[in-house]
Measured scan of single mutants.
Amino acid sequence: MEVRTIKVFTTVDNINLHTQVVDMSMTYGQQFGPTYLDGADVTKIKPHNSHEGKTFYVLPNDDTLRVEAFEYYHTTDPSFLGRYMSALNHTKKWKYPQVNGLTSIKWADNNCYLATALLTLQQIELKFNPPALQDAYYRARAGEAANFCALILAYCNKTVGELGDVRETMSYLFQHANLDSCKRVLNVVCKTCGQQQTTLKGVEAVMYMGTLSYEQFKKGVQIPCTCGKQATKYLVQQESPFVMMSAPPAQYELKHGTFTCASEYTGNYQCGHYKHITSKETLYCIDGALLTKSSEYKGPITDVFYKENSYTTTIK
């Protein structure tokens, strides 16, 4: 009895394709271990004539594949690729409408935090270190965002349907971005203890939790000093293409032309909904596939993004 075979390709990165001759009487799992086709788990399936010449994702289970996976995804987590594939199996079914010149995501599976993050990423200057993220990001900007969303979920250790947080998501993504040249110098002034300067680099240099107003941050924000008295913390120097200011959701007025974009969060910790506000020729609110415009805006804002380049204080 002759062994019926077909020729397929296996890959971990969709760049390096490895030619395989597979036995049609055995499952993919018996031949390769966990195997995925377009995100779908085909591990328990036997090869079919229609699979001839198709590319299958496999887990990096030998040295060659491990090197290829690390170079593309910059992670050695053995569960990463499987999590990416199972997320992709959902995100490829989502709709990605162009809204006001940006790629958004039609609401499904509690994905409003991903839509808000995706919209924000198209408006701030950011370059990702893992080629996987950078490639998928370019495709997302062009309207094909399924891979990018699935990668975000995998890097953030999230599953489809789980509630997510924009600030946490951005923080994970910033860790995989090139923020080497970003720098922030802060000064804390206390009447009792004097003053202390701190220099922050990388992710810490672009994120701040405690106030939404970048102007206020430049002037000074009140913080408790270690001595128990009130101290003032203010920005001395900022070198970065953008800054992200966050605070627990509270009524906040966004003035046209003073910011790049913002995240609105309605609801409580267990259950809520994100919308995205962007400042173009007027203010726009993007909620999944829905767009509304207004000249002014007041609502429960939790993150505001500002364009920056270089700032030095005039406070002496």
Rank of each mutant, 00 (worst) to 15 (best):
R4T: 14
R4H: 14
I6N: 02
K7F: 08
K7P: 11
K7Q: 15
V8F: 00
V8L: 07
T10R: 09
T11A: 03
V12D: 13
D13Y: 01
I15R: 09
N16A: 07
L17Q: 09
H18Q: 08
H18C: 10
Q20W: 07
V21K: 12
M26I: 14
T27I: 14
G29Y: 08
Q30T: 14
Q30I: 06
Q31S: 10
Q31K: 10
F32I: 10
G33L: 00
P34F: 05
Y36C: 02
Y36R: 02
Y36D: 00
L37Y: 11
D38G: 11
D38A: 13
D41M: 07
T43W: 03
T43S: 11
T43I: 01
I45E: 15
P47Q: 00
P47R: 01
H51I: 00
G53D: 13
K54R: 13
T55F: 03
T55D: 01
T55S: 10
V58C: 11
D63N: 08
T64S: 11
T64V: 14
T64N: 11
R66N: 15
A69P: 05
E71M: 15
E71S: 00
Y72D: 06
H74F: 02
H74Q: 08
T75K: 07
T75W: 00
D77T: 02
F80V: 04
L81R: 05
L81S: 03
L81E: 04
R83S: 05
M85S: 05
S86P: 01
S86N: 12
L88F: 03
N89G: 12
N89E: 08
H90Y: 10
K92S: 09
K93H: 08
N100E: 14
G101H: 06
L102N: 00
T103W: 13
S104F: 06
I105G: 00
A108I: 05
D109P: 05
N111E: 03
C112E: 15
C112Q: 08
L118P: 03
L119Y: 03
L121P: 05
I124F: 09
E125G: 06
L126C: 11
K127C: 09
A132D: 00
A132S: 05
L133S: 01
Y138A: 15
R139W: 08
A142K: 14
A142D: 14
E144Q: 08
N147C: 07
L151R: 01
I152Y: 03
C156E: 01
V160W: 04
G161F: 03
G161W: 04
D165L: 06
R167S: 08
R167G: 03
R167W: 15
R167L: 05
S171P: 00
S171N: 10
S171G: 13
S171L: 12
Y172T: 14
F174P: 00
Q175W: 02
A177Y: 01
N178Q: 06
L179Q: 04
D180H: 13
D180T: 09
S181D: 10
S181E: 13
C182D: 01
R184K: 07
V185E: 03
V185K: 08
L186I: 15
N187C: 14
V189M: 10
C190H: 03
K191P: 13
C193A: 00
Q195N: 14
Q197C: 08
Q197Y: 09
T199M: 08
L200P: 02
K201V: 15
G202S: 05
E204H: 14
E204L: 06
M207W: 08
Y208A: 13
T211Q: 09
S213H: 06
S213I: 07
S213N: 15
Y214R: 05
Q216H: 13
K218M: 07
K218N: 05
K218F: 02
K219R: 11
I223T: 13
P224G: 09
C225R: 04
C227W: 01
C227P: 03
K229V: 04
Q230C: 06
Q237C: 12
S240I: 02
P241A: 09
F242K: 06
V243D: 06
V243F: 05
P248Q: 14
P248W: 03
P249V: 14
P249A: 14
P249K: 07
A250Q: 12
Y252K: 05
Y252C: 05
E253Y: 08
E253M: 08
L254E: 08
K255T: 12
G257A: 07
G257L: 03
T260V: 15
T260L: 13
C261S: 04
A262G: 05
A262M: 03
E264R: 03
Y265F: 13
T266N: 15
G267T: 14
Q270T: 15
G272W: 10
H273E: 04
Y274D: 06
Y274P: 02
Y274K: 03
H276D: 06
H276Q: 07
T278A: 14
S279K: 04
T282P: 06
T282F: 07
T282Y: 12
L283W: 03
Y284L: 08
G288Q: 01
A289L: 04
L290M: 13
L290C: 14
L291C: 14
S294N: 11
S295L: 13
Y297I: 06
Y297N: 07
Y297D: 06
K298S: 11
K298I: 15
G299I: 03
G299D: 07
T302Y: 02
V304I: 14
V304R: 04
Y306M: 03
Y306H: 03
K307Q: 09
E308D: 09
E308S: 08
E308W: 08
N309A: 13
Y311V: 10
Y311K: 14
Y311L: 07
K316F: 14
K316V: 13
